[in-house]
Amino acid sequence: MECDRAARRDRILMCAPDNFGVEYVINPWMENQIGEARRSLAWEQWMNLRRLLSLTADLTFITPVTGLPDMVFTANAGLVIEDTVVVSRFRTEERRPEEEIFRDWFDRQRFTIAPWPADVAFEGAGDALVDCERRLIWCGHGWRSSARAAELLERIFAREAIRLRLVDPRFYHLDTCFCPLAGGWLMYYPPAFDAHSREVIAAMTPERKRIEVSETDAMSFACNSVDVDGRLYMNDASDELQSQLRDAGFAPVLTPLSEFLKAGGSAKCLTLKLTDK
Score class of each variant (00 low, 15 high):
residue 117 P to V: 02
residue 247 D to E: 15
residue 33 Q to F: 00
residue 179 C to G: 08
residue 93 E to R: 01
residue 100 E to N: 11
residue 56 T to Q: 15
residue 78 G to W: 03
residue 208 R to H: 14
residue 100 E to W: 05
residue 141 H to P: 09
residue 148 R to P: 09
residue 44 E to Y: 04
residue 255 T to S: 14
residue 210 R to M: 11
residue 70 D to G: 07
residue 130 V to Y: 10
residue 47 M to C: 11
residue 271 T to Y: 00
residue 87 V to C: 09
residue 60 T to R: 05
residue 68 L to G: 01
residue 152 L to W: 11
residue 6 A to W: 14
residue 223 C to S: 09
residue 138 W to M: 06
residue 121 A to M: 12
residue 244 Q to D: 14
residue 166 L to I: 04
residue 152 L to R: 12
residue 217 D to A: 08
residue 32 N to V: 05
residue 117 P to Y: 01
residue 253 V to S: 09
residue 76 N to E: 03
residue 255 T to E: 14
residue 256 P to Y: 15
residue 41 L to N: 07
residue 41 L to K: 13
residue 93 E to P: 06
residue 88 S to L: 09
residue 271 T to Q: 04
residue 153 L to A: 03
residue 18 D to C: 00
residue 9 R to Q: 14
residue 48 N to Y: 07
residue 97 P to E: 02
residue 198 R to V: 08
residue 150 A to Q: 00
residue 157 F to Y: 13
residue 240 E to S: 15
residue 121 A to E: 14
residue 96 R to Y: 07
residue 185 W to N: 14
residue 248 A to M: 06
residue 124 G to Q: 05
residue 151 E to T: 06
residue 79 L to E: 05
residue 78 G to M: 08
residue 131 D to T: 09
residue 137 I to Y: 00
residue 275 T to K: 09
residue 89 R to V: 02
residue 243 S to G: 08
residue 162 I to K: 03
residue 129 L to M: 08
residue 112 T to K: 12
residue 206 P to G: 05
residue 17 P to F: 02
residue 59 L to I: 03
residue 168 D to G: 02
residue 137 I to V: 04
residue 221 F to W: 07
residue 83 D to S: 13
residue 160 E to M: 02
residue 174 L to T: 02
residue 82 E to R: 12
residue 21 G to Q: 07
residue 165 R to L: 02
residue 103 R to C: 13
residue 254 L to Y: 01
residue 9 R to T: 06
residue 195 A to H: 07
residue 231 R to D: 09
